[in-house]
Design a protein around this nucleic acid. Structure first.
Lengths: 209, 209
DNA sequence: TATTAATTGTTGCATTTGCAACATATATGA
DNA sequence: TCATATATGTTGCAAATGCAACAATTAATA
């Protein structure tokens, strides 16, 4: 899986980060990495750890938009025209690299050769993000909770090249990720078990279909 | 709005398209531009016209994933791991340019200078697509039909820099876009009107909030 | 290890939604 | 222009969902 600095010399990376005025920051679990991202060009890369992009609306309803892990990118330009309710929250101790998005898109005067490589990496990462977004759209576009769960489970299993996968969400978070009521989801998971579609053995879900 | 060949000389574009073995094809309204995209690297640009990316599942439920207009890109690599139920359908007479995605990512031996420009344009387009995807995710992540409609209307109006916007979907298509039942949506639109939230005057929606 | 916090599991009930089946209006094409 | 197709609008009803409130289990931490 390509990362932003793939195939760039250690030395060149250092130079670039200096040129970008990049800051490496460690966020403790539960801390807010970014909020109110619209109209900023701040941009980040997860170096280690995990984070969630969440929306909490005026009713206090929490929605997990996306789950970020090592190598993932985030920041203003990707949510530009989007409203101001988004935050990025560390879900474990998480190290991020922050800098201004313009440094990626606009070459500086020096026009370093490795900048081309950076842009190519960025392109790949964005293509992957589009893909992931489309996957999620297809999941939550399903009408019923049952179908959403099945589509989610199948997608996870497929990406795992298997008929099973390890849950990386708590069930509470999964409900917020799928934008459904938790208790209704529990009810449906129970149904899926009873109907023999799935089996859950300590945090691993097995698909029988 | 950046297009794929922005800032590339007319002549260079011609050379590139030859090198890419690109085909320009006209699809009549309602014709299928692509289906079964997973595991292909076929890639396209809309030159003129409009198209929808749709999913029709085993129950015959139609879902409009995305609406494509001039300058938009589409194709295998963006839906790679996604299932095989997707199709791209022309919604008006539509001219597209088709070629293999590899030509974008992998520079050929000639290593033409304008290829860098192409990749930078592609990066911008992808970033915009990520943004658009996130917008849609935030809309359909709302739990109720009422909230989905309001979020959709507000997003459209905001992108229009206004308190109103022109509908570019039929209501039937809007329901498929938002993944909700059409009749239930009509009911809710009626409620929104009665509650004074919106007003619809021939295909233009005015927000009063 | 004891205490507290968080997660999982369950249920009744009101509300929302989807579905089916219409009527009406508007658009399209022979 | 007439006939047909498509889009809009409406309703009753069954099914699915969200909400609230709770118990039981598991995890976190003082």
């Amino acid at each position: 899986m390509i990362t932003l600095f793939e195939n760039i010399e250690e030395n060149d990376i250092k130079k670039m980060l200096k040129c970008f005025d990049a800051r490496k920051i460690l966020y403790k679990k539960e801390r807010t990495i970014l909020t109110n991202m619209s109209n900023t060009t701040i941009f980040g890369v997860i170096l280690s750890g995990t984070a969630n992009i969440i929306r909490v609306d005026y009713n206090g309803v929490r929605n997990i938009l996306e789950r970020l892990t090592e190598g993932d990118i985030f920041g203003g330009p990707l949510y530009e025209s989007v409203n101001n309710e988004l935050s990025i929250i560390a879900t474990s101790d998480t190290e991020v690299l922050l800098f201004d998005y313009h440094h990626i898109v606009n070459r500086c005067r020096k026009n370093c050769e490795y900048h081309s490589r950076l842009i190519e990496n960025m392109l790949q990462i964005l293509a992957r993000k589009v893909q992931a977004n489309n996957e999620k759209l297809l999941i939550i576009s399903k009408k019923t909770i049952r179908e959403k769960l099945l589509e989610y489970f199948q997608t996870k299993a497929r990406n795992n090249g298997s008929k099973s996968f390890k849950m990386d969400f708590t069930l509470t978070d999964l409900a917020d990720y799928l934008s459904i009521d938790r208790s209704a989801m529990m009810r449906e998971i129970k149904n899926l078990k009873e109907d023999g579609f799935i089996e859950i053995i300590n945090k691993r879900i097995y698909l029988h279909m």
